[in-house]
Simulated scan of single mutants.
Amino acid sequence: MSSPIPGVVAWAVIGYVTVLLSARFWLGGGAVMDRLVNHTGLWSIATLLIYRCASTPTIDDPANQLALGCVLMITTYQYSIGRLVSADSEPDTVWRHQRNVALLALTATVSIVLAAAAARYTGRSVDLRLAGVGLGIGCAFAVTYNTFVLTRICLGPLRDVDSPRAARIVCTVLIGSNAVLSGAHALSLSQLATGWPDGPQLSLVQAAFTLWVAINATLHAIPLVAELVLRAGMDRATRTCRRLLPLWRDLTAAVPEIVMPVDARHGSDPATRLLRMIVEIRDAMLHLGAYLPAETGETQRNTVREHESDRELTDYAHRLIRAAQARKAGLPRAGAPPPLSVVAHDFDAELSHLIDLARIWPQAKAAVEEPIAQRAVDRRSP
């Protein structure tokens, strides 16, 4: 094998990209962006496999010529991804344009292979020289500089001071990987124009391309991991919903009419479910306010301010549980609804208070229901 990449490293990268791409196909996603990324992965795997078949590190080898065509094809998809991210065109327009450009890249690849075969047949050399077939190959290779389109797009989040740190890191890594690949291409074009540096440069291009594939596959795995976390129910919104579920279930059982119908379009979205759950808990608390038992003096002094201790929160939870029991039993209201004891000035503060209430809810419910159950047992005893 003429490859500068050790076999164990090359096959590890091929296996890594194959696993990630298989996961992307398994998770589905028919959006244009998903299709562009998936096709880029397929052509990347094909290129790496072809590189493993090359017997020499020069353009004379048909395997390297086919690999060059695959790189051209990858370039067309990268360019389309750049257009789609920069919102220059509609997704459907980008996809139609991509099919046309891919056909041109396929035509260029066939031309390269046929020109190289004709050169070998006539006894001429096939290399990166400023003449003949070498010039054609060099011009085709220059098309890979379309990767600069992505670099230009990545500079946008870096200039924006409000961009999240994760987005900045991803953009920086993308710019770095494109710089490595473009640097290798620049050396090849320099050899084409000036003859410097001496020796074949395809080995360097292959090494840079392998590194680029590994980096980009890793970056494309970020939304993949996020989707897997979401499907496993381990995302933050779903975990919060699970924490609020006992509280929500008991309160909405007492006030079932406030439960909103599930929107088929957004019902499975964790963030939407969490928002609905919070709204319904708050509505239930408002309805149950008129059934709250009388407050103790200690509780009255702390009603209008936020809870400062578990003791105050537990007292409110006890009263709210009794209010839910009273409403479910059809008992009359205790009076006018008092102010809510959980005061929140924004979404995060309100969510934090409800999570605190849900945390002590099971213990508070057991403490309220245990005496009732014990009295029932005592009445049945002879």
Rank of each mutant, 00 (worst) to 15 (best):
R120M: 02
I278D: 13
L251P: 09
E350Y: 05
A23E: 01
G297H: 12
S111D: 09
P337H: 13
R282H: 12
V17C: 07
R359H: 13
C241Y: 12
I258V: 15
G29H: 08
V343I: 15
R301Q: 14
Q374D: 02
A10M: 11
R322P: 04
G7S: 15
A324S: 15
D269W: 14
R152K: 01
L247G: 06
A63K: 09
N216L: 07
R231Q: 11
V161P: 09
A193T: 09
R96D: 10
V343A: 03
L351M: 14
R129P: 03
I360F: 01
E295H: 05
W248P: 11
T151P: 13
V255G: 05
S125A: 06
A140P: 00
D235E: 02
G29C: 01
G297Y: 09
A329M: 11
R375I: 12
I81E: 04
L245K: 10
R152L: 11
R327G: 02
G123R: 07
I14Y: 12
R35T: 03
A373L: 13
C241A: 06
Q78I: 12
L244Y: 08
G156E: 07
T252I: 03
S111E: 01
A367L: 10
N146T: 10
A115E: 08
L84T: 09
N302C: 13
R242G: 07
L340G: 14
A179D: 10
W248Q: 14
P4I: 00
V126E: 04
P6N: 08
R311K: 06
E280G: 04
N146R: 03
S22F: 13
H307G: 02
G138K: 02
A336Q: 11
A221D: 10
M260A: 15
I112A: 03
V143D: 02
N216K: 13
R96V: 11
H318Y: 15
R129Y: 00
A264H: 14
G233K: 00
D88I: 02
V113W: 03
T238V: 04
V101Y: 03
P91C: 09
L340A: 15
D356M: 14
Y316W: 12
A31D: 11
V259K: 11
P62Y: 02
T303V: 15
L224E: 13
S86M: 10
R327K: 15
G41T: 09
V229G: 07
S86A: 15
D61L: 04
P382H: 14
T107N: 13
A108R: 04
G289L: 01
Y121P: 05
A366N: 11
L313Y: 08
F209G: 04
I137C: 12
D378S: 02
L158V: 06
A102W: 02
V149E: 00
D269Q: 15
C171K: 10
S86T: 07
G195L: 00
A364L: 01
T240G: 03
V170P: 05
V304T: 14
V126I: 05
V205Y: 04
